[in-house]
Write a protein that binds this DNA or RNA. Structure first.
Lengths: 365, 365
DNA sequence: CTGAAAGCGCTTACAG
DNA sequence: CTGAAAGCGCTTACAG
């Protein structure tokens, strides 16, 4: 009993399966892995599978990894992003795609905020751990200089393009997203569409402003008339909205729709609008950007906004990484040409057609 | 050249270091790992270290793991939590503590929301990968029934206690947090402190209500007079606040402070208060719970609230896990007795002393 | 103080 | 169709 039970709970290895099935470990490996170019009699296969099942055999991935020189693990480095709201969706997208690809996702948060220089420490940590590839997700930068460590290995960027043009990347198409929501406003009948811009110079600031201008121009509208910039927070939204609403007191000159740089600004704008006795969306439509949880859905009324493709960036990044690892870059994606991912509009209740009937003067002008 | 360069970029192993230093791999291993009970001459040590440095040697963790039967990786399973706002901080805390412990953190999101039964799939995935231990983080449940897979291995729970009482866990001390913020309100001079409770029956609902009552009772105040329950969202906060404010129209009977079940409800309460022409905090102090980003800081005025110890739960969980792995449970923590972590107050600008001077009648009553 | 050798649990030419 | 054997890169008794 002493001898027998001592090993009873021991880990069952391929050797145990082989013994149980009365075959060699070679054969066990072949049938369990469906090794190509290998024939095995049905009888043998069944015996092996039954034995493996019976013993609850789980191949040791460490041993397998050592042998085939691949850990089956990819690393995700998030740059201050784990703390950033809803960037959890990048992690979620990456993790779920990793599972689909039979990969394990490990993560490291980079404390450094390099703006343009990527922190090599996280990359090295993953390399020490035999990661098969690495994803570096930044808060939205334009260009980034990846460290040397990233150049020799399968790598992909999220939220920033590689300045050297060697590493593939995925970024949100903020410009097109912004343009699409002004298109939507135009289609709803709005002509005086204001933009509460951000005063901080980040790529998103430029992209969304450009998109606003695209949309206005496409509709034959003046892209300069109703633009005010302020800090990209609730307070800034309040200020920008106040300025935009107060330039023209008359309802027939006032914007009928307000596009805010982000949802937090929209939150502030809601207040400025309420203070002026105006109702959303009856008197004023407002839209945001980010689909930031829990703001967008919690506002009165719930905010129509454009969503960032966080989940998709995470998922696409690991799919692409897997492609590189197996050296078949997805869709022949060109390194250095970042892939822009669509930012879809999320329709809620803050948009309505303008109501000229309430201000008949507008039509007599 | 052909022969020489072919292997130039090849991975450098312990054998290469041994050769370069003119010693055996045994010795290299001993000096690089500072193996206990092992003497090595300083001269040899230096040669080995220099050689390792020179060659840029990085031990292969897979090989090491296979040999010592420990992957150096721990798994974090998050139950729908990756999507949940600011739970990213659990991941962050776990990751940073893992790095401190020289562990790698891998994550899996559990799609299943079992309420009381934990999804074993994630646990199994980690076991297949030779994880040294597993952390399961739930959205706040009271008790949970871990699958058999978790029983035999180092494991810890976040946000829920093990019904069987075998797995250690960390949970926020919501009750004490709630009590502490009413204490604070009392200290600021408030006596009529209302509570906008949640109508959904989750542990947090009970804990926070209990804490409110503790605080009121401790101050000799009636814990039943000003309580209204509604959905734990902005809308519910609006409704509950409206009810609480309208019961007594007179300023001398109205609550002077409102404690909301969570920050989203506080967001709605802000609106109800503004609609009644009241100012925060001059006419009405309001506090929330969760310190939910970006609501709490974005409100006008910024909301004083109580924070959940997300980062700490993540960090403590991996520290405890490491203790179990090395079989020295931290502080002799008793399994089954969950460790309650403090929920600190985050002071912002939504609290002031009540202003009886504005309503002199109050003192003449 | 140092090293030869076994072995962790797999995969994979290679031979039969 | 099947198996014996080498080897992935380490660590660790054990011997000297």
């Amino acid at each position: 009993m002493k001898t027998g039970n001592r090993v009873a709970r021991k880990h069952v290895g391929i050797r145990d399966v082989a013994a149980a099935a009365g075959v060699s470990v070679t054969t066990v490996s072949h049938v369990l892995n469906d090794t190509p170019h290998t024939r095995t009699s049905d009888d043998t296969r069944n015996r092996v599978k039954a034995a493996a099942e019976e013993l609850g055999y789980q191949p040791n991935r460490l041993a397998r990894g050592l042998r085939i020189q691949a850990s089956g693990m990819v690393g995700l480095i998030t740059e201050e992003i784990a703390t950033t709201p809803h960037a959890g969706k990048i992690i979620l997208g990456a993790q779920e795609e990793a599972t689909r690809q039979n990969l394990m996702l490990a993560i490291i948060n980079s404390s450094l905020n390099p703006a343009v220089e990527i922190d090599p420490a996280g990359v090295r940590a993953f390399l020490d751990r035999q990661a098969d590839g690495v994803i570096y997700a930044t808060v939205y930068h334009d260009e980034v200089n990846p460290p040397e460590e990233m150049l020799g290995i399968p790598a992909v960027l999220i939220g920033a393009r590689d300045a050297r043009g060697e590493i593939p990347s995925f970024m949100p198409d903020e410009r097109a997203g912004a343009a699409s929501i002004v298109d939507m406003l135009v289609a709803a009948g709005h002509r005086r569409i204001a933009f509460a811009a951000s005063s901080v110079d980040v790529p998103a600031t430029r992209g969304r402003l450009l998109g606003y201008r695209d949309g206005m121009l496409a509709a034959g509208l003046d892209p300069d008339q109703f633009v005010a910039a302020a800090e990209g927070e609730a307070k800034g939204g309040y200020e920008a909205a106040a300025r935009l609403l107060d330039v023209a007191v008359g309802a027939d000159e006032r914007p009928t729709a307000l596009f805010c740089y982000n949802d937090r600004m929209a939150m502030g704008a809601y207040r400025a609008i309420a203070e002026r006795g105006l109702t959303i969306p009856a008197d004023m439509s407002v839209v945001g950007f980010d689909d930031q949880d829990p703001i967008a859905a919690s506002l009165f009324p719930p905010l129509t906004t454009v969503a960032l493709p966080h989940y998709e960036m995470g998922a696409r990044a690991v799919a692409e990484l897997m492609g590189i690892i197996e050296s078949r870059p997805e869709h022949g994606l060109l390194p250095g040409h970042p892939t822009l991912l669509a930012c879809p509009i999320v329709h809620r209740d803050s948009v309505a057609a303008p109501s000229p009937d309430k201000h008949p003067r507008a039509s007599t002008h």
